[in-house]
Computed example of a mutant assay.
Amino acid sequence: MPENGVVLKQGKVIAMSAGIAVLNKPISYEITCTDKMPLAKNTELEYVKSDGSKITVKIGDRTGTLSIVDIILIPALSELDRSYYEVVNSKLVFKIYSHTNGSFEGENVIGVAPDFMKADTKYFSTDGITFTTRDGKKVGKAYNYYQFLPLRTKTAYTAKEIDAYIARELKDREAKGSSGDTETYGYGAVLGSKEVGMNVKYAADTNWGAKAAAHYYAFEKESGFKDAKQNYKIGFTNDSDYLYLRVRIGPSTSFDELYNYKRFNLPVLVYGEENGWYKITSDKLHDKAVYIRGDYITLQETTK
């Protein structure tokens, strides 16, 4: 197919050279032969290819096949609106588009923009990690601190400070006549996206993790960025060939295994190193440090 090519059937796009696929109904998207994740109506997926009836799509690194009747194909260079990210005053703003309502649902400021992004430019992502231009050209990867910070970190705020902020926000929303909706499922104890974290299976809304991160960032901005200043180190398990990655109670193989990770690319909070082993916060109830061999963890810089 030529660049920017489109195939129509009875006025409907059934194949194209590049673009996105938008769900027109909720579905269960197969992750493995034994596991699925929910995806809501209006979810935007990366288009891969089409045979006219079956559409191959991606969300993050997960490739799947959907029926043409369940989606709407939007060519990359189409002037139709879609969700996008932009830089405003050095901050990363996520604007979410509802294809059902034909309008944007508001702005979510989720933190400081990555260095590779420029103002007055729209960026696109189906997983909140890998960003592209509208025509699908990749421009960079970034992990937002508030979206991928492990939830087992200790906050610098008191319960009183958090409750006070929530009360102010609820009062403000009620005054505007609006209200908000009030197990990690094995994909990592971070808010995340459909690539990694609670958002993989906890919420059908692909943008749930980004929306929650926007609330966290707004609270931090008002309260002095105390959590951002703690300089937590975030790592990801990195060996796809090493199933059942062992987490031990000490920094060598002579120590007992406490639990294991059955998937790779899972986020962990790293707060020390001993003898080539990273000291991490346990994802299983345990009141002491646990350890993973250093070569099985990749430290990841984040944007705040």
Rank of each mutant, 00 (worst) to 15 (best):
E3I: 15
M16P: 04
I20Q: 07
V22Q: 07
E44M: 02
E46H: 05
E46K: 02
Y47D: 08
S53Y: 09
I55L: 02
T56D: 11
K58W: 11
G64C: 02
V69K: 12
D70P: 14
S78F: 05
Y85T: 06
V87A: 00
V93K: 01
Y97E: 04
T100D: 06
N101M: 15
S103M: 03
N108I: 01
G111M: 06
D115E: 08
A119Y: 09
K122H: 14
G128D: 14
G128Q: 07
F131G: 01
Y145Q: 02
P150W: 05
P150K: 06
L151Y: 05
R152S: 10
T153E: 03
K154D: 14
T155G: 14
K160D: 15
D163G: 06
A167Q: 13
A167D: 15
R173Q: 14
S179W: 09
T182C: 08
T184N: 08
V190A: 02
G192D: 10
V200L: 02
D205I: 14
A212V: 05
F225N: 14
K226T: 10
Y232S: 11
G235C: 13
P251L: 12
P251H: 11
Y261L: 13
G276S: 06
G276K: 03
G276A: 06
T281W: 00
T298I: 13
Q300D: 08
E301G: 08
K304G: 04
